[in-house]
Structure formats: structure tokens, C-alpha cells
Design a protein around this nucleic acid. Structure first.
Lengths: 158, 158
DNA sequence: CGATAATATATCGTGTGCGATTTAATATGT
DNA sequence: ACATATTAAATCGCACACGATATATTATCG
């Protein structure tokens, strides 16, 4: 990579990730319309279908999102009747998010989504698996670099 | 991939892309603070540094974004003094976006960003190039599938 | 030439996302 | 026990991001 080309859009790994994320979310939109969910809402449902009754912090860690993102999103899921939010009696700081019957019923419909997405990708499942594993490694490097720089105190409250 | 596992978060390619995009943007934030730009604003600057004086539509196509996203963003770049917006005299429907002297001056500072990002990635440049190329191919498959389904008229104004 | 279609951008409403801060509850240290 | 620190969510302000629609301009067709 020539230093002169480093600022070229097409040479940038990060733009590839950024634009791929948008392309993927646009592919989900028509499929998720049948469930009445947005993509981030669908991700929360995936997390809850795997393990119901998690705290906001647990969901946030799993999805790598902040409470400031999840709080309004979870309120919408509750308003739609797919989830319930109640304080943990053991620890009143925590909020336990649980699926309703309607939330569980949605899982059936969601079964149709992964095959639809696979079709849009134009790739085989093993190809996507390989790419996913490589991507997760780089993602975790970025996350670790950020955590380290925050630990050192380059940013933050000090 | 077992059908039972298709709805598992960790098995999903799309969540890897989604979460990687967030991790990447979080890595840019401290670096871009020195320039006073957000990541999407930085992308627009990259496009204009490569070719100044593009239309909104041209920038949108390059970044795969909608005019409804770019219009307010470009107004902010103009308000910050990095870009100018003027109608094309040849075609008054079009808006030409041009860099100011301050916008060009920013390119110098931006030179420090790609090396900083490379360091956060924990990968070599060739490794990122390989991953980028694979990712762009999948992204374009998703985009093509969407364009095709819209052409057929599965969605849209019909 | 004039009605109609197509094009380019802007506007509006909704839903993420995040950093910074606030509020409330629990843990810790003396 | 009680002041202090830590933790967990929520709130606030700002900036994307998109679909749907509106507006203005240009192109097209009869």
C-alpha cells in the first residue's frame, strides 16, 4: 500500500466493512417486515431466544452496544408486546428482559430469515463461515485496542 | 450449519459484519476528533479529495448512501467550512460539492489516520486487503440481489 | 409548444448509535 | 453505621440512515 493511496476510498478495509454492514441491513429489511422488527430488534430477539431473562447489561455485552442504545429499543419491544421488562428483586439496579408468548411465537417466523439472507449473499454457508471468523478476529482486535487505550487512560474520565 | 443453529447469534455472518462496523467506527472516533469529523463525514472528505466538485448523487453512489443521509451531512461540512455547495449552472437540479481551502488542508492531518487504524486492527496491510476484497464481493452480491428484487418489483412503487 | 415523465435534491418521521451525565441501588472501607 | 465508591440503567443531545414524499428542474413525446 503506497502512502499516497492510503486515503483512497476503495483501498480502505474500513469502508468495506461499513458499506457491507449497510448492504446487509438493507437485505434484512424486507424479510424482517413480516415480523415487524428492525435489524437491531431482531438481534435482541436472537439473544433472548438463546437465553431468556437476561439483563440489559448482558444483552449489551452480547451485542456490543451501549445501554443508551438498548434502553429505548427494549421499550419498543415491550410496547410491541414481544418482551417484558422488570427489575431484578435480587438487585434492583438490574432490569430483567423476558420474552412474552408473542415474542416466542416470533421465533417460528424467524426461521425463514437465515436461508433468505444466505440466498442474497451469493455465497455458500461455509464461505460465509470463513469470512465471519476472519471478521470476528479483526473486530475483536479493534475492540481490544480500544479497551487497552481506555485502560491506559488515553481517553475517558481518567 | 444445523437449522437449529441458524438463529444463534455467534453463527451469523451478518452480526459479525454489523458488530465489526461498529468496532471500526469506534476506533476512528478518537483519531477523527483531531479533525473535527465524524466517520461518515470523513468518508465524504475522502471522496472529495479523490475528485473535487462532485454532485450529491455522485457522492451518494460512491458511498452507497441516500440523498436523505447526505444532504444534512453536507450542510454540516459546509457549516464547518470544509465544503461549499452550489447548484450546477448546466443543470440546476444538481448540487456541486467543492472543497474549501480548509477542506484541502485537512487532508494533511488525515494522513495520520490510516496507520493508526492499521495498528488497531492487529493485522498486516495485506491481510486486511484480502479480507476487504472478500467483503466487497459479498457486499456487492447483497446489493445486486436487492437491485434485482426491486427491478422485478417485489418491493417499491411498482 | 405544451402536457407528461423522469431526474436530482430536499424534507419529514422513525429508529438506531454513542458519549456524557444523571439517578438509583449496592458494595466497600473505616 | 455511615460516608464513599462502584455499578446498572436511564436520560439527553447530537449525528447518522433510510423510506416515503415533496419540490424543482430537465427531458420526452405527441
Amino acid at each position: 500500500m503506497d502512502a499516497n493511496d492510503a486515503l483512497k476510498l476503495e483501498s480502505q478495509f474500513c469502508f468495506a466493512v461499513y458499506s457491507a454492514a449497510h448492504a446487509v441491513m438493507r437485505a434484512y429489511r424486507p424479510l424482517l417486515e413480516a415480523l415487524g422488527l428492525t435489524y437491531p430488534q431482531y438481534l435482541v430477539m436472537l439473544v433472548l431466544w438463546e437465553a431468556d431473562g437476561q439483563t440489559v447489561g448482558g444483552i449489551a455485552e452480547r451485542l456490543m452496544l451501549e445501554s443508551s442504545t438498548l434502553t429505548p429499543l427494549l421499550k419498543r419491544l415491550e410496547a410491541m408486546g414481544f418482551a417484558e421488562r422488570r427489575r431484578n428483586p435480587e438487585n434492583e439496579r438490574q432490569l430483567i428482559v423476558s420474552l412474552t408468548a408473542a415474542g416466542w411465537a416470533l421465533q417460528e417466523k424467524a426461521m425463514a430469515i437465515p436461508p433468505g439472507i444466505l440466498a442474497c449473499s451469493g455465497r455458500t454457508a461455509p464461505e460465509l463461515t470463513n469470512l465471519r471468523e476472519a471478521l470476528v478476529e479483526v473486530r475483536d482486535s479493534f475492540a481490544a485496542a480500544r479497551a487497552e487505550s481506555r485502560r491506559i487512560g488515553e481517553v475517558g474520565e481518567g
